[in-house]
């Protein structure tokens, strides 16, 4: 626990207090700026996670084929792994970046709890976390009020809970990969509503400083999506309509708009695999092969 505090909780706590000083003692602004900075810092991981998630999504049709073809679980597993290998996809690729970010999130939760706790005991606890620098010490006590909220108390006005719900929904809606598998689609549908509801519920239970962090983190996530995927996917129809049950290809083209480089790169391996199995796909295969050296090499290996 000592190491955990030393590496995560204490540096985050002090960084938040420093930001509080920079932004004239407004701790709400400090949380917002810190969230933006953290999202920017972990952006490479987030992008990698998006790429991996899309690559896996693109492999769905092929995986369904494997499931139909091989009834023996062991064999199916082997073939699935082979498929991953051939497509150059790491199934843990979308989990690893998320796992790396978890300590930062949890550290931030704990830091916020310590800073905005507001009780005399939590203030004493804060003293054990702050570095003995005059610049940091002069921030104490921190101002807990931000807009209509006491950052140390849950926001009972429901406004923050609604913002968290809406922003989580939008981000979730944009990030949910398309799939043709009815079971996965059903799970995605459930998660699309469950996650925002859960976070809205949590917002009503925890200090509103955490709610501000969640809302801001989601908003930054949506903005990042805008910059990585272009403006077209973000429109009210896309965001408010539940994911359609239309075929994956059509749905993907509606939701994802013009093919950004990143998306194209992520989907390439799967398309290539599908095409390789098609005896009449020669013309299209030829066209696809003009892309990139790496694919050429992979093709050669096959």
């Amino acid at each position: 626990m000592f190491l955990w505090d030393l590496v995560f909780v204490n540096p985050i706590t002090n960084a938040l207090v420093i930001l509080n000083n920079i932004f004239l003692g407004n701790f709400g602004v400090a949380i917002i700026v810190f969230t933006i900075l953290m999202r920017l810092l972990t952006m490479p991981l987030t992008l990698r996670q998006i790429r991996s998630s899309r690559s896996l999504s693109a492999l769905q049709p092929k995986m369904q084929e494997l499931q139909k073809k091989y009834k023996d679980p062991k064999r199916r597993q082997e073939e699935t792994m082979k498929l991953y290998r051939e497509a150059g996809v790491n199934p843990l690729g979308c989990l690893l970046p998320m796992l790396v970010q978890f300590p930062i999130w949890i550290g931030l939760y704990q830091a916020l709890r310590i800073i905005v706790g507001g009780t005399p005991e939590s203030i004493i606890g804060l003293s054990q976390r702050l570095y003995p620098w005059g610049y940091i010490e002069q921030a104490v006590p921190l101002e807990n009020n931000f807009l209509w909220m006491d950052l140390g108390q849950p926001d009972t006005s429901l406004i923050l809970a609604f913002i968290v719900f809406a922003s989580t929904y939008v981000q979730q809606r944009l990030a949910t990969p398309t799939t043709t598998d009815p079971r996965t689609q059903s799970t995605n549908q459930m998660m699309l509503w469950m996650m925002p509801l859960m976070f809205a519920f949590f917002t009503l239970q925890v200090p509103s400083g955490l709610g501000v962090y969640w809302a801001m983190s989601n908003i930054v996530g949506v903005v990042m999506y805008y910059f990585t995927h272009g403006p077209e996917p973000i429109n009210w129809r896309t965001v408010l309509m539940p994911p359609s049950t239309a075929p994956a290809g059509r749905q993907a083209s509606r939701r994802e708009g013009p093919p950004p480089k990143e998306k194209e790169a992520a989907e390439e391996p799967a398309e290539e695999l599908v095409e390789a199995d098609q005896p009449t796909g020669g013309k299209r295969k030829k066209k696809r092969l003009r892309h990139g050296r790496s694919r050429g090499k992979r093709k050669d290996r096959r």
């Binding site: 949890i106 939760y109 704990q110 709890r113 939590s122 239970q205 925890v206 955490l210």
Partner: peptide
Amino acid sequence: TLFLATACAGIAQP
């Protein structure tokens, strides 16, 4: 994990 994190981050009680 999120639930755990949230549970750990309840309101400080006097």
